[in-house]
Amino acid sequence: MTPDLETAYRDASESPGLALWRVTNAWQRSIRAALAPHDLTHVQFVLLASLTWMDRSRPVTQRDLAAHAGTDVMMTSQVIRALEAKGYVARAQHPTDGRAVALTPTPEGIAVANRANRDVEAADRAYFGALRADDLRTFTRHLNTLDHRD
């Protein structure tokens, strides 16, 4: 029987999009498992870790955080509210922009971000350990190329 799908690929395994989809789903499963003991979703972790990582010598806005993490601004706002309810993020009026909110991780948020990050980095090492070190560097370089396309 011949497949009905019109495609440029002789075999589904040749599709980079399908391969990325499958790898992303498998990797996300491992990250969800690593984050479960910390009671954080993946996006909560990414935003909390990003906020903890970012230079806060000037106020960090939700827009700044969303740009850093590559997330939607409205979704970022919703997730920040959830992290605030958990006591991990504090929101305050921006000192110079009356329309903006300044974000800071709380001491508890910083501690949770660091504990969770240790587990996430261990999950990354385990998952990406299937690649040799030089292949992993090349893979990461290619991902960054795709991430910075405009």
Rank of each mutant, 00 (worst) to 15 (best):
M1N: 02
M1L: 11
T2F: 06
L5K: 12
E6T: 14
A8Q: 10
Y9M: 12
Y9P: 06
D11M: 10
A12M: 07
A12V: 15
P16N: 12
A19E: 12
R22M: 08
V23S: 07
T24K: 04
T24D: 06
W27V: 14
S30E: 14
S30R: 07
R32K: 11
A33F: 12
A36Y: 11
A36E: 15
L40W: 02
T41L: 03
T41N: 01
H42L: 10
V43K: 01
Q44P: 04
V46W: 00
L47T: 04
L48N: 01
L48D: 02
L51C: 03
L51S: 11
W53K: 11
W53E: 09
D55I: 06
R56P: 04
R56C: 14
S57Q: 11
R58D: 10
V60W: 07
V60T: 15
V60C: 13
V60G: 11
T61P: 05
L65H: 01
L65C: 04
A66L: 00
H68G: 02
H68D: 06
V73M: 01
V73N: 00
S77K: 01
L83W: 00
E84G: 01
A85W: 01
G87E: 09
V89F: 00
V89Q: 00
A90Q: 11
Q93R: 08
H94K: 12
P95E: 10
P95N: 08
T96M: 14
D97M: 10
D97K: 09
A100W: 08
A102T: 08
A102M: 05
T104G: 04
P105Q: 08
E108D: 11
E108T: 07
E108N: 02
G109R: 02
G109L: 10
I110P: 01
A111Q: 07
A113Y: 08
A113K: 09
N114R: 08
R115L: 05
R115G: 04
N117R: 08
V120Q: 06
E121L: 05
A122N: 09
A122F: 02
A123N: 09
A123T: 03
A123V: 07
D124N: 11
R125S: 05
R125G: 13
R125I: 08
Y127G: 11
Y127D: 04
F128A: 06
G129H: 04
G129C: 07
A130I: 14
R132V: 13
A133H: 06
D134E: 14
T138C: 03
T138V: 13
T138R: 15
T138P: 05
H142D: 13
L143S: 08
N144F: 14
D150F: 12
